[in-house]
Amino acid sequence: MPPTLIDVLQQSYVYPISNLAHWGDTLTEMIQAGQFWPALISGEADTFLFSGGGNDMLGGDAGIARFLNLFDPDHANPSDAAYYVKPEFYANLKLVLQDYESLIQRVHLRAPDVIMVGHGYDYAIPRSSGPWIGNGMMFVGLDPTFQADLCQAIMRIMTDAFNKGLAGFAATYSNYRFVDLRGVVGKNEWRDELHPTAAGAAKTAARFDAMLKSLPKSGTFETPAIASRALFGRAA
Rank of each mutant, 00 (worst) to 15 (best):
A124I: 14
P16Q: 07
A21Q: 01
F146G: 07
M1F: 12
L5V: 00
T197R: 07
L5I: 02
R110G: 01
F178P: 03
G168Q: 10
E44Q: 14
H75S: 07
G136K: 02
S18Q: 06
T197C: 04
G24D: 08
R177W: 01
D7G: 11
R156V: 15
A81K: 09
P2E: 08
G168H: 07
A153C: 08
M137E: 00
V185Y: 03
P112Y: 05
I6Q: 02
A210D: 15
A153H: 05
N19S: 12
A235Q: 08
D122I: 03
L142A: 01
S128F: 09
T220L: 11
M116D: 00
G60M: 10
G200F: 05
H195I: 09
V114N: 02
L9H: 10
A227E: 03
P224V: 13
M155L: 15
E193V: 12
S218L: 09
T172I: 06
R66A: 06
A153D: 13
W37Y: 12
S42F: 12
D180P: 05
V179L: 12
R207C: 15
M138G: 10
D25V: 01
T223Q: 11
A230L: 04
K164A: 15
N92G: 14
F221D: 13
T47N: 09
K187E: 06
P224D: 13
M116F: 06
R156D: 05
A170F: 04
L9S: 07
P87W: 03
G54P: 04
I154W: 01
D143T: 07
A206V: 14
Y84E: 03
A170Y: 10
N92R: 13
L93P: 04
D99A: 14
G233Y: 00
K164I: 00
F146P: 00
A65H: 15
M137N: 06
G219S: 10
I115A: 05
S174W: 04
P3H: 11
D149L: 08
A65C: 10
Y15W: 14
Q147R: 12
Y83M: 08
G53H: 03
R182W: 07
I154K: 00
S129Q: 10
A230R: 03
I6G: 00
V179N: 12
I41W: 03
I31E: 02
A202K: 15
F178C: 04
D113Q: 15
T159E: 11
A91Y: 12
S214K: 14
L97T: 02
Y176L: 08
E193G: 12
R110S: 12
D180Q: 06
W132T: 02
R110V: 09
M30C: 07
D80R: 09
F162T: 05
V14S: 10
I157E: 11
R229D: 06
R110D: 14
K217D: 10
A111H: 01
P144N: 09
M155T: 12
G120H: 04
D7Y: 11
F139H: 15
P196M: 04
V185S: 06
L103F: 15
A198K: 11
R207K: 15
F71N: 09
G63C: 05
F146D: 10
L142P: 01
P112R: 06
L97D: 02
R106Q: 15
K94W: 11
N55Q: 08
I6F: 13
I133R: 00
A82M: 07
V117H: 02
A210H: 13
V114L: 08
K164P: 00
